[in-house]
Amino acid sequence: MPAYIIARFRIHDRESYDRYEAAFMRVFSKFQGKLLSVDEAPEVLEGDWDYTRSVLIEFPDKAAAKAWITSPEYRAIAKDRLNASEGQVIIVEGLPPHA
């Protein structure tokens, strides 16, 4: 069953975040993920939103998503993201295919 990483960030150090972003695809491409959306101007339909970036990533399953986010390669580049932004990252399971 597919799994999705949903993240939202408030970037306060663009230079450090740009370093993270420059290295992201090199690491990400090794983990069967699919980058579905990166948006710095999402349209708010309900509620409050004070984040400057939203990200949606699909993986074949939770195990693949966790392998990526806990990998030494990702943790090494994530230091720049963690220093450059505040945010939240969650993982959710997709729905089973309709029978």
Rank of each mutant, 00 (worst) to 15 (best):
V27R: 13
R81S: 00
D80G: 10
R26N: 15
Q88D: 09
I5M: 11
A65E: 00
L45S: 08
D80H: 15
N83S: 14
A67P: 01
P60Q: 01
E73F: 02
F9V: 02
T52C: 05
G33N: 00
M1F: 06
A64V: 02
Q32W: 09
R75V: 14
R26Q: 15
E86S: 15
Y4V: 07
P72E: 14
S37L: 14
P2E: 10
S85N: 02
I11K: 07
G33W: 00
G33F: 00
K62P: 07
P42L: 12
T70L: 14
R14S: 07
R8P: 04
E58L: 11
D13C: 04
F24I: 01
V55N: 02
I6V: 14
V55I: 10
I5R: 14
S16G: 08
E58A: 09
R26A: 15
Y20F: 10
E93Q: 08
A7Q: 11
L35F: 08
R8M: 10
P2D: 11
D50H: 10
M1L: 14
E73I: 01
E46I: 07
A78K: 02
A63H: 11
A23C: 11
T52R: 05
A78D: 00
K79W: 08
A22F: 08
I6F: 11
A84I: 00
Y4S: 11
R53D: 01
Y20C: 09
D61G: 03
R19V: 06
L56K: 02
F24G: 00
I90T: 12
E58G: 06
L36W: 09
